[in-house]
Design a protein around this nucleic acid. Structure first.
Length: 825
RNA sequence: GCCCGGGUGGCGAAAUUGGUAGACGCAAGGGACUUAAAAUCCCUCGGGGGCAACCUCGUACCGGUUCGAUUCCGGUCCCGGGCACCA
């Protein structure tokens, strides 16, 4: 159905016609075409929460703009979409609305798919994935059993937030002021057996490879680097007085060992628990530490408290008895759960020592010989050793070496590389997730479910009462035979962390319907890696680190070839309104659907791309949307009212005004191309097209555009450029306008415009003239003026002469074609 | 608390490699058209001074480097993201 170009812009028929064209032609369905350059553009898939929010619209518009741009650049572009469909909100909704999580999730998916389609995104919908579907999670289960066989997963006791009333583990966000969100019971930390994947075995590689991720934002790389937290130090042990046990600690500052005046251990440390058995006050202190949720932010901000547990350890160098304190700030999950404390040279130890009257000893002095008052503040820099007996005078490195030798000779310590990164706990005590494919046999222990028995289906015919996962009470799910010995056994009832699903979906999109294995080699080899990944900055560490890790696991299983999954990463900022993140609880949301109904998808897309650069937060403004809408109306009117004709551009026959317009057209093409490709900022690209529009308007009102073939030619060139350059952002209107400009092929199949360098040549440029760094004149001068000519012109200017009066010129700085700065006093 | 960002007109922002601060848009004010309104079009639009030419101050705050700093360095304040079970 062809669109009638009338004077008025009506988004609805335009968007319908363009979307109908793409659907009928299956424009975005792609297949691997070996030999043809590909571009895999992926936006982080959404959790199907019910309706799209503006953050989704922003994320997916950025992705769509890049995908459509790359297509016009001649690439075979894959842009898929799917659903990160397992997770907590489905369980919450089930409780609230009495709807089973599966039903709720699939209904949300259907609704949100419709919303995405209204926005005109160039997705290959034939590759749609929902991670809660057995066709997806079966391969995740299969892969976990492979890791199990390789020894890359293990089970150990680990703490969760335990709700003693509901008898279930709680997510951090379900613990409110120390209480379970539903039961209101005081939450306690409890150890339960859980599955872990050995991400620490890949810590060194995950860290080293960050250097090669040059398509990633620097800040994301730095955050991941600090998260992995590699350090080199000395691990050694103290002899526990009156016992044959030892207390192991790790330090990155072995040069300060002589300054140890106490040791600090976690409340859950075995020595602490042992001491508490015969010390009621200590037991109470330890119990108090348990009423804190399992979140580092909570632990780190809590008041630093401690108690002498009565145990003494023997200082390995001095032989002195050193007290051992139980301290709230020592985490059992880091290292050995114990630290040596050097209040003279560590801020936290210093404050703790002050609070409890523990001795402070200076063993490091500034290397430059200056004095330092150790009772006023700790000296935390590296320096020279003092008060350290045989080690006096050594610097950090020499002291490190000497201590290392000493401890190694005595077999009480060694050099150690440590990581802050901990192994990935993947067990969740929740229902709506992929079942962990393990069977616990009383005789054989934990046994992987054999491949032929996969998938372990998550039962969906369940009663959901909120007090724990229903499958934990479902004997028909639990009871099974051991695959090894055939004896009676029990199925694991925990499900996977949902980060598991989102760690490999990018690879599955290459072969979403493949049923003979996790990944299909030919498809994966063609489409991977992801050329452009787009998502929120909030995923900078966890999701992106797990996905990088998973990629390496896939590689080592022979399923993918490369070392890293995502070549280039764009982290988009949040969508705010009235200075705060849009959220239901604040009641400041703007519904994308009503915006699309009122203004159309093109306006919403244009506004979102125009109002902020993608990596910054975006402040929503209703009148800004009006502005975007007005621009589209103007664009529609001026191009729609233009009649294209076949005419040859003759660059030799142009007058000055025509040359000016061509200059603007081609500087715009150059700038916009650079903004899309290299800088990935779309607000300035749109601003540049608006400038071209303004210049074209002036040109049209100054001249009769029917006046001569060359006028027609340069106007047509400018209009074509605007439609092509805006095409990725405003695809529907541009689709129709492109046809109107006389093209048979669709805009999505048109080539990106090329810059005509000859149109860019300028004979005159504006040169700024400064006196002592202050702007005093702007001169229009020949573009190829020499240093001398620039200087002479600057000195000849009346204003410049006025400011030089009575001064002696000391120096003249000339930046050719740009600026002259006369330094005088 | 720790790690990482950000702070420029009334507002969203621009200034890409240290070189003319405020492009582009919004809002506002004035004008044209209209019986009127809407829509559209034109003009003005960082603060202070001046009839004007123009001068002066100004990029969170304090200091530094430089001929020249929104940009680089040191410090401070405020806002945001993450902190391993929200996704």
């Amino acid at each position: 159905m062809p669109i009638q170009i009338s004077d008025d812009y009506h988004h609805q028929p335009i968007e319908q016609a363009a979307q109908e064209y793409w659907r009928a032609k299956q424009s975005f369905k792609v297949r691997a075409q070996p030999g043809k350059p590909k571009f895999y553009c992926l936006s982080m898939f959404p959790y199907p929460s019910g309706r799209l929010h503006m953050g989704h619209v922003r994320n997916y518009t950025i992705g769509d703009v890049i995908a459509r741009f790359q297509r016009m650049r001649g690439k075979n572009v894959l842009q898929p979409m799917g659903w990160d469909a397992f997770g907590l909100p489905a369980e919450n909704a089930a409780l609230k609305n009495q709807v089973p999580p599966a039903q709720w999730t699939y209904e949300n998916i259907a609704y949100m798919r419709g919303q995405l389609q209204q926005l005109g995104y160039a997705y290959d919908w034939d590759r749609e994935i929902a991670t809660c579907h057995p066709d997806y999670y079966r391969w995740e289960q299969w892969f976990f059993t492979r890791l199990f066989q390789k020894g890359l997963v293990y089970k150990k006791e680990a703490e969760v937030n335990w709700d003693p009333v509901d008898q279930t583990g709680l997510a951090n966000e379900q613990v409110i002021a120390g209480r379970g969100w539903r039961s209101g019971a005081l939450v306690e930390r409890r150890k339960i057996p859980q599955w872990f994947i050995k991400i620490t075995a890949y810590a060194e590689e995950l860290l080293a490879a960050l250097d090669q991720l040059d398509g990633w934002p620097e800040r994301v790389r730095v955050m991941q680097q600090n998260w992995i937290g590699r350090s080199e130090g000395l691990e050694f042990s103290f002899e526990v007085a009156g016992s044959d046990e030892r207390l192991t600690v790790y330090t990155t500052r072995p040069d300060t060992v002589m300054g140890v005046t106490y040791c600090a251990i976690a409340a859950q440390h075995p020595l602490a628990l042992k001491a508490a058995a015969s010390n009621a006050t200590l037991a109470a202190f330890i119990k108090k530490q348990d009423n804190l949720k399992v979140a580092e932010a909570d632990l780190a901000t809590v008041e630093k408290e401690g108690m002498d547990c009565g145990i003494r350890v023997i200082h390995p160098l001095t032989g002195a008895a050193v007290p051992v304190w139980v301290a709230s700030f020592v985490l059992m999950s880091y290292g050995s759960g114990a630290v040596m404390s050097v209040p003279g040279h560590d801020q936290r130890d210093f404050e703790f020592a002050h609070k409890y009257g523990l001795p402070i000893k200076q063993v490091i002095a500034p290397a430059d010989g200056s004095a330092h008052d150790i009772n006023a503040a700790p000296y935390v820099e590296k320096g020279r050793l003092v008060n350290s007996g045989a080690y006096d005078g050594l610097d950090f490195d020499a002291a490190f070496d000497a201590l290392q030798t000493e401890f190694e000779n005595r077999r009480i310590g060694s050099k150690q590389v440590n990581f802050r990164l901990r192994d990935w706990g993947v067990s969740r005590q929740r229902y709506w997730g992929a079942p962990i494919p393990i069977i616990n046999c009383p005789a054989c222990g934990a046994v992987a479910v054999p491949e032929s028995d996969l998938p372990v289906l998550l039962p969906t015919d369940i009663e959901f009462d909120g007090s724990g996962s229903p499958i934990k009470k479902m004997r028909s799910f639990i009871d099974c035979a051991c695959p090894h010995c055939g004896g009676a056994a029990e199925r694991e009832t925990d499900t996977f962390d949902t980060f598991m699903e989102s760690s490999w979906y990018y690879a599955r999109f290459a072969c979403a319907r493949h049923s003979d294995g996790m990944l299909n080699k030919d498809d994966v080899d063609y489409w991977l890696d992801v050329d452009q990944y787009i998502g929120g900055i909030e995923h900078a560490i966890l999701h992106l680190l797990y996905a990088r890790f998973f990629h390496k696991l896939l590689r080592d299983e022979g399923l993918v070839q490369s070392d890293e999954p995502f070549k280039r990463l764009l982290t988009q900022g949040m969508v705010l309104k009235d200075g705060a993140k849009m959220s239901k609880s604040l009641g400041n949301t703007v519904d994308p659907e009503s915006m699309i109904a009122q203004y159309g998808a093109d306006t919403v897309r244009l506004y979102m791309m125009f109002t902020s650069p993608p990596d910054q937060s975006l402040e929503w403004s209703d009148s800004g949307v009006d502005g975007a809408y007005r621009f589209l109306k103007r664009l529609w009117k001026v191009i729609g009212g233009f009649k294209a004709t076949p005419v040859m551009l003759d660059t030799a026959a142009l007058n000055a005004a025509q040359k000016e317009l061509r200059l603007k057209t081609h500087t715009t093409i150059r700038k916009v191309s650079d903004d899309y490709e290299r800088r990935q900022v779309f607000n300035t690209a749109i601003a540049a097209v608006m400038e071209l529009y303004n210049e074209l308007s002036k040109f049209l009102s100054a001249q009769d555009c029917q006046d001569g073939a060359q006028n027609q030619a340069v106007v047509q060139e400018a209009m074509q450029a605007m439609v092509l350059l805006l095409g990725p952002i405003v695809p529907h209107a541009c689709h129709v306008l492109w046809q109107h400009l006389g093209h048979d092929a669709a805009l999505i199949d048109a080539a990106w415009p090329e810059v005509d360098e000859s149109a860019l040549v300028q004979h005159k440029v504006n040169v700024a003239v400064q006196v002592n760094g202050k702007l005093r004149a702007v001169l229009e001068l020949s573009a190829d003026a020499t240093h001398e000519a620039l200087q002479a012109a600057a000195h000849a200017d009346v204003t410049v002469q006025k400011f030089l009066e009575g001064l002696t010129v000391r120096k003249v700085i000339v930046v050719p074609g740009k600026l002259v700065n006369i330094v005088a006093n």
